[in-house]
Design a protein around this nucleic acid. Structure first.
Lengths: 205, 205
DNA sequence: GCGCAATGTTAACGCCGTTAACACGACATC
DNA sequence: GATGTCGTGTTAACGGCGTTAACATTGCGC
């Protein structure tokens, strides 16, 4: 009846509003009916654009991985080692800026691995940026020629674990988080954390 | 009607069956109605023992933290440094043996921090074991007197991140996980990972 | 102008959490 | 032994959810 029977642009707006819902209230609040209400549309209309609720959530997570990859790629430094630490800090900043999105991306609950191939490749794409910065640091003869694969996995574990623990409030005295973030991202470097005064690496060449 | 109108032992059995449900099918499957069916009881009966579904999940997570603490305390080694790495590996083993429980404990979704004080203290109790093993390693003059708090936070970040990434299948070539776990737990040690060839722990007696 | 495919709506199903009202039965008190 | 109370179970019902089937409307190609 009204001139907007056909919404025209529902898919894009649905994604936008779903992102807003996720950011504001968490994944549990991203419900097809709530999303439909926001869009002034009935719930079944969304099934023209998403196979089901899980597909919607997967799309949100995939966009998250693409965005994360972008932000990691945007980190540019001359020195390979500085770039590596910059990427670690950008990673943590991403998680802290969008905790609900980050939890959706890595929650693991709703998204059985392999069910959404685009999501998986987007995740690998983000990881690849980290992997490359490790490779570069290795090529620049930092990191003592340790094996690149495990090293990247360990680096990712470190930043991911720190990001999750902080956004969930598991770490005590969180106020020292900024300094901690720096420490954490430098922990993988040869000789451990740099030694301004009290921190003193031993095996430094 | 039947002699078992009063179940008698519902709270304990409910917790047990809920744990089984969680382990087998994940947190989303832990539903009050499904649990009631398993126990051959109607759903509202469970409200005599749990305030609501979130309280049930919080109880499951709390038991998880207590169990994790137990398993970390069970790690006994003579050398403080060995004990530290043993604790790291026990932590990762716990997560890999009970991925759904681990995700519930650290998912962050359903359990707004502070809503279940017993849960929070149980979480801190588990962390305290790790913190103490770090303190001991410091006292034994390992780790070159780095600040203990940030160091423990970093260690926890590392094992937690690695645990989550592996149980969610985010790390590529996961088959090398055993070696990786060893690498990861040794990453914090003085000098970083041993660089002989691939895996060779220093401080081996 | 017409027909079809895309995209919306309405109605309905079963599952869920949760609550109110009621039923049973163990146990203390007389 | 009768009686009453209170812990613990049941029944019935509400609204919200994901999802599907059937139908309605419109834009676009011919």
């Amino acid at each position: 009846m009204s001139s907007t029977y056909h919404h025209g642009d529902l898919y894009r707006q649905a994604l936008e509003q779903a992102q807003a819902l996720l950011h504001e209230e968490g994944a549990a609040a991203v419900t097809l009916r709530a999303l439909a209400r926001r869009l002034r549309v009935t719930a079944p209309a969304l099934y023209r654009h998403f196979r089901n609720r899980d597909s919607l959530l997967a799309a949100l997570a995939e966009h998250g991985f693409l965005k994360l990859r972008q932000q990691l790629l945007a980190v540019q430094r001359d020195d390979a080692l500085e770039r590596l630490t910059g990427i670690g800090q950008a990673y943590i900043a991403f998680a802290q800026a969008r905790p609900n999105l980050y939890r959706l991306m890595f929650g693991g609950q709703l998204l059985p691995r392999g069910a959404h191939p685009d999501l998986d490749t987007a995740g690998l794409g983000a990881f690849a940026v980290l992997q490359k910065s490790i490779d570069d640091a290795l090529a620049a003869d930092y990191l003592n020629g340790q094996p690149a694969g495990p090293l990247a996995a360990a680096a990712w574990s470190l930043v991911h674990g720190f990001a999750e623990l902080t956004i969930d409030g598991h770490l005590p005295d969180e106020q020292q988080a900024p300094g901690l973030a720096a420490l954490v991202t430098r922990l993988l470097l040869p000789g451990g954390p740099p030694s301004d005064d009290n921190n003193n690496p031993r095996h430094q060449p």
